[in-house]
Write a protein that binds this DNA or RNA. Structure first.
Lengths: 122, 122
DNA sequence: CTCTATGCAAAGTTTTTGCACTCAA
DNA sequence: TTGAGTGCAAAAACTTTGCATAGAG
């Protein structure tokens, strides 16, 4: 595990805002100014493959998430912010044979709308 | 509504495989060889804004979907195919105040795994 | 010493945009 | 005749890859 790998991992781990690769790069540069976007992508992809971080695909580019396991996200269509939505019971999604012989490994749930900050700007 | 708009709309409407923009272009060209990828994107985005088609964000590029309303998708990690999963009861996602003052307009649910075709190839 | 991972640059992908022009109203 | 929408090409945005080299074990 290289220094860069640790820096990238910590950047995601210390972020609660589901950063894009660009934002991860910026946070890594605070610790290691010489780090490169290619290294950030390579390490993000490696960490995903290892299963220690997750990718969230939303408008405005993919986000990276320290939180593992099935959980829901909310994305604001106005400011594009992504937040975790805790306390959602996803059990109804696991319930039946609706997956038609497909093997399901993962469930992504994303709510989209307008966040309370952007609602208050009107 | 231009001829091109109609061609793009019909390409999505007649596709059950959740085509990418590239695939939409190919299907449009069968009807109108001169149509351009920029026109396809412009019309896809316009149709989304009008609310008559939907965008599905998955690995391998965004897909376009004729089916409106909340419904679940499945994407195979091996062949990248995207299919609708019918009969999923999404009601548990609507249940409570878990959305923290955010206004929710839309819910995306995507299962990921390996489809039965790819499972059988092993 | 070896081999993995890095930095850099270039290329690949996907999507958007500027601009002149076409076509329908 | 006018303006919305097109085709083309260029650019923008995002991500991956080739290669020489640096650094860890």
């Amino acid at each position: 595990m290289s220094k860069q790998r640790v820096v990238v991992y910590n950047a995601v781990l210390n972020s609660s805002d589901h950063p894009t690769a660009d934002v991860v790069l910026a946070r890594c540069k605070e610790q290691m100014p010489s780090i490169n976007i290619a290294t950030v992508y390579r390490n993000l992809n490696a960490l995903i493959k290892e299963g220690v971080i997750q990718k969230v695909m939303v408008d405005g580019g993919d986000r990276f998430d320290k939180t593992l396991g099935a959980h829901a996200h909310f994305q604001c269509k106005v400011c594009n912010a992504v937040v975790d939505i805790d306390g959602v019971d996803l059990s109804c999604l696991n319930s039946s044979g609706f997956t038609n012989d497909n093997r399901v490994d993962e469930i992504d749930v994303t709510f989209k709308g307008v966040c309370h900050n952007c609602l208050n700007l009107n």
